[in-house]
Structures are given as structure tokens and as C-alpha cells.
């Protein structure tokens, strides 16, 4: 297992390094003169040079790259050209919305998908099993924003139970913040749950047809025991992979739900800064997201090692 961990960690660091070069080259190299872009097309050459000097943009690319990477490791993600705010502060305040949104949405999705997928895999001939399959198809077809709008119409406008949008800070009004997140989390969870249900269903179907489940039954396990003790344990492997991919997709991919519910989350921040040509902000935030995604992949790989001895003990 130690060798496995070391190998996965080394791969993680290597991948982060490669990604940082790719991002730097894409944003700086392909983006043209950064100072000119920031100042707009009416700027004078003198002004452009002054700005370039001020931010060190006139130095060689290699120097700038290592400067940037070095600062990231020190927790300094740079500053916004326009507002001079520290990117770190911007990101942290946005993450205080995005992380609870994503994590709770995913948990809700799993909470729906694991029982629903398992049930429909084992009871496809019963009405409820068929209904689950149909609902999951519908859930996959429904765009998340539409689910969000419908939910906010019902619970926000018609019943008035929850806010239809907006955000108050955690520190200012904790329960207000919670209430603002409920509908986004439910919309995200329902849609995620629908697609995860299909993965769980097919994983359970596949596992329950394996010979070793029959062996478990032949040695005295009831259907339910074989499912819980042997089936789900083995089905956890493919499900972990899918969940890992979903987290990765979620962290920067909740822009639609954030827009529908007017939440100042990370995704909307990136979008706004791309539009505003905030090169440093975009570069650093994207880098952060990539590190996060790769970290999740690392966790999934390690989890795989824990779950599956064939992976852990492979030479």
C-alpha cells in the first residue's frame, strides 16, 4: 500500500506541475500583451509599459512563471488589476458558498441514488422499480436551471417558505445563509441523484450477477445479506469513480445554479473575471480548481486502493 500511495502522490505532483505550465502558457502566451489588454485599446504605449513594469509583466516568461508558482505555494494568489483585492480573499469568500453547495448537493444526490439505484436494480419487474428508472431518465433530461426555477417558483414564490435567491454572509446571518442554500442544494441534488441513480443501478446489476454473489448465496446468505455484505461492497468501486468525476465537475461547474439563485459562488466569479480580463485572477483561480480536481482524483485513487485489494497489491 505504501508503494501505491507514494506512486499516486508522485503522479499527483507531476500532474499539478504540468497543469500549471499549461495554464500559464495558455493564458499568458496565447493572450497577447497582458498590460495592453487590461488597459484597453485606447491606452498609450507609455501607460502600457508603466503597468507592465508595475506588475513585473516585462520580465521574461520563465521568471514570471516561477514567481507566480512560488507565490501560490506561499498562499499568495496575486491581486486583481482593477480592484487590487487579493485573489486569496476573493476565492475564500466564494468558496464559503461553493463548497457547502457542492458537498451537500452531492451528498443529497448520493442519498437519493444509492437506495433508489439499488432498489430499481433488484426490482425492475415491480412498478416502483420501473418508476425509479423513468424518474431518473426524466431527471437526466431536465436541465438543472429548469429544476431550480420550478423549485423556486413553488417554494419561493407560491409558498413563500424559502428565498428565491440572494445571499447573506455566514457571519451576518447564519440561518439566512442556510435558507439561501436550501433550494440550490435541492435542485443540484435532485439532478445529480438522477444521473447517479443510473450508475448505481448498473453497478449493482452487474455485481449481483457475478458468480461470487451466487457463492455467497450458496453458503447461506439471504438475498438481502448478499446484497449488503458482498454486493454493495463490490459495487462501491465503480461508484467511487463516478462520484470522484462528479465532484471535479461540480466545483467549477455550478455557474448555472449560482446564476439562477443569484449566489456569489466561485463559478460566477470566474465567469465575471474572464469577461473583465482579470488575467491574474482567472489564472490563479483556475489553477486552484485544477489542484482541487487532481486532489479529488488522488483521493479516489487512494480510496480505490482501500476498497480493492487487486489495485492495492498490484506491483
Amino acid at each position: 500500500m505504501t508503494l501505491y500511495i507514494v506512486r499516486k502522490l508522485a503522479f499527483f505532483l507531476l500532474a499539478v506541475f504540468a497543469a500549471s505550465i499549461a495554464i500559464f502558457l495558455l493564458i499568458r502566451g496565447a493572450g497577447g500583451n497582458v498590460a495592453a489588454i487590461i488597459l484597453g485599446k485606447d491606452a498609450t504605449a507609455d501607460a502600457i509599459n508603466a503597468l507592465a513594469q508595475q506588475y513585473g509583466l516585462d520580465r521574461p516568461m520563465v521568471v514570471q512563471y516561477f514567481d507566480w508558482i512560488g507565490n501560490i505555494f506561499r498562499g499568495d494568489l496575486g491581486r486583481s488589476f482593477r480592484t487590487n483585492e487579493a485573489v486569496t480573499d476573493l476565492v475564500v469568500s466564494r468558496l464559503s458558498i461553493s463548497i457547502p453547495l457542492c458537498v451537500s448537493g452531492l451528498l443529497l444526490g448520493l442519498l437519493i441514488a444509492i437506495p433508489a439505484g439499488t432498489y430499481s436494480a433488484l426490482n425492475s419487474d415491480k412498478p416502483l422499480g420501473a418508476l425509479i428508472t423513468i424518474l431518473s431518465q426524466v431527471g437526466i433530461a431536465v436541465p438543472v436551471f429548469w429544476a431550480g426555477i420550478l423549485l423556486s417558483l413553488l417554494f419561493g414564490v407560491r409558498l413563500g417558505w424559502l428565498p428565491t435567491g440572494g445571499w447573506t454572509n455566514w457571519s451576518a446571518d447564519f440561518w439566512g445563509a442556510v435558507r439561501s442554500l436550501v433550494l440550490p442544494i435541492i435542485s443540484l441534488g435532485l439532478i445529480l441523484g438522477a444521473s447517479l441513480t443510473r450508475y448505481v443501478r448498473s453497478a449493482v446489476l452487474d455485481v449481483m450477477n457475478q458468480d461470487y454473489v451466487r457463492t455467497a448465496r450458496a453458503t447461506g446468505m439471504t438475498r438481502m445479506e448478499a446484497l449488503l455484505q458482498v454486493g454493495l461492497r463490490n459495487a462501491a468501486l465503480p461508484i467511487a469513480t463516478v462520484v470522484g468525476l462528479q465532484i471535479a465537475e461540480l466545483i467549477g461547474g455550478t455557474v448555472i445554479i449560482e446564476t439562477v439563485f443569484s449566489l456569489p459562488g466561485l463559478s460566477r466569479m470566474i465567469l465575471a473575471n474572464v469577461a473583465a480580463r482579470e488575467v491574474i485572477v482567472v489564472q490563479s483561480t483556475v489553477m486552484l480548481i485544477i489542484i482541487f480536481v487532481m486532489f479529488i482524483n488522488l483521493i479516489v485513487d487512494l480510496l480505490y486502493g482501500v476498497l480493492d485489494p487487486r489495485v492495492r497489491l498490484a506491483r
Binding site: 458468480d211 461470487y212 457463492t215 450458496a218 453458503t219 447461506g220 463490490n234 480493492d308 485489494p309 487487486r310
Partner: peptide, 21 residues
């Protein structure tokens, strides 16, 4: 289920896939 494996049991054809991995 209380009998399977106790009073009556079975050995299957393919041992490669019949044990819990």
C-alpha cells in the same frame, strides 16, 4: 438460507470468479 452451506452446499464451475475478490 439457514440450510445452504450447512446441510446442502455447492462447488461451482469457475473458481476464478466464484470467490469474493
Amino acid at each position: 438460507s439457514k440450510r445452504r452451506g450447512r446441510t446442502i452446499s455447492m462447488v461451482f464451475q469457475d473458481p476464478m470468479s466464484s470467490l469474493n475478490p
